Computed example of a mutant assay.
Amino acid sequence: MGTVVSAIGIRALERPAAGEPEGALVLLHGRGADERDLFPLLDALDPERRLLGITPRAPLSLPPGGAHWYRLGGIPTPDPETFWPTFDAAAAFLDALPVPMEQVVLGGFSQGAVMSWALGLGAGRPRPAAILAMSGFMPEVPGFELELGGLDGYPVAVVHGSLDPVIPVEFGRAAAKRARAAGADLLWRETPVPHTIDPRLLPELQAFVAAAVPMAERN
């Protein structure tokens, strides 16, 4: 397990890069999990440890337990009263990273995927190097807008299980369709699994992360 770090009211685990970080990989866990849940995925997606790896813990403690990014308000409509404070805290956390956002691959699973869309494409937010959305949806919250303009060639990966009983695959398909229509360089994968990350997709996702942050030139 990596070093525990905290900033702006959000606690996180950090997996150091093997050398000078060439960027960062930030993974946001799903509802009721915690910062340890996706920590092993850091090495799976960045085995050479080129990137600083960070898994934040969602700031809310809600029933039935674990950490939450927002209170459930339906799909695709997070509860606004909890979404907005979390969005502000998570945005401040990302802005305080020692790596600029244009070198950060931002991804997440379930609620973490929802927040990845929000934090990566929210109006006025700096755009990360790429977005990896796993088994989630693009959020619809009063007063909140996604900036989908100017995505020509922008790397986006959306993966979803066709057997997902928690967030139906139609929401993943809709997010992928919107990203593709906006011109994103889209990796879309739908596989016959429930609400989980299909391990068969890891090689493709590893390549996606590697390509999103080009390898630094060495002297």
Rank of each mutant, 00 (worst) to 15 (best):
P21V: 01
P21T: 03
P21Y: 00
E22N: 11
G23V: 08
G23R: 00
G23T: 08
A24I: 14
L25Y: 07
V26K: 05
V26T: 06
V26Q: 04
L27H: 09
L27K: 06
L27W: 13
L27I: 11
G30S: 11
A33L: 11
D34F: 07
E35K: 04
E35Q: 13
E35G: 10
D37W: 10
L38W: 03
F39V: 08
F39T: 00
L41P: 11
L42S: 02
L42T: 13
L42G: 02
D43E: 10
D43P: 07
A44K: 02
L45G: 01
L45A: 02
L45E: 03
D46T: 15
D46I: 14
D46N: 13
P47Y: 02
P47Q: 06
P47H: 04
E48I: 02
E48C: 05
E48L: 08
E48W: 02
R49D: 05
R49Y: 09
R49S: 03
R49M: 04
R50D: 08
L51F: 08
L51H: 01
L51S: 10
L51G: 07
L52G: 06
L52Q: 07
L52Y: 05
G53T: 13
I54Q: 02
I54G: 01
T55P: 06
P56K: 01
P56C: 00
P56G: 04
R57S: 08
R57V: 13
A58W: 03
P59L: 03
S61G: 12
S61A: 12
S61L: 14
S61E: 14
L62S: 09
L62W: 06
L62K: 10
L62M: 14
P63F: 00
P64E: 01
G65Q: 03
G65A: 05
H68W: 15
W69K: 08
W69Q: 02
Y70C: 12
R71A: 15
L72T: 15
G73K: 05
G73I: 10
G73D: 12
G74Y: 04
G74L: 00
G74C: 04
I75E: 00
I75W: 02
I75H: 02
I75N: 01
I75K: 06
I75L: 14
P76C: 13
T77A: 11
T77N: 07
P78V: 13
P78W: 04
D79P: 14
P80F: 03
P80H: 09
E81S: 14
E81I: 13
E81K: 00
F83K: 10
F83W: 06
W84H: 04
W84G: 06
P85A: 09
P85F: 11
P85L: 07
T86G: 08
T86I: 10
F87C: 01
F87D: 05
F87S: 01
D88H: 11
D88C: 08
D88N: 09
A89W: 00
A89N: 05
A89L: 13
A91Y: 01
A91M: 02
A92R: 07
A92P: 03
A92K: 04
F93D: 04
F93A: 08
F93E: 07
L94T: 08
D95Q: 13
D95F: 05
D95P: 12
L97V: 14
P98V: 08
V99R: 04
V99S: 07
V99E: 06
P100N: 08
P100Q: 09
M101Q: 15
M101L: 14
E102S: 15
Q103K: 15
V104K: 06
G107V: 14
G107E: 11
G108W: 01
G108Y: 03
F109V: 13
F109M: 05
S110K: 03
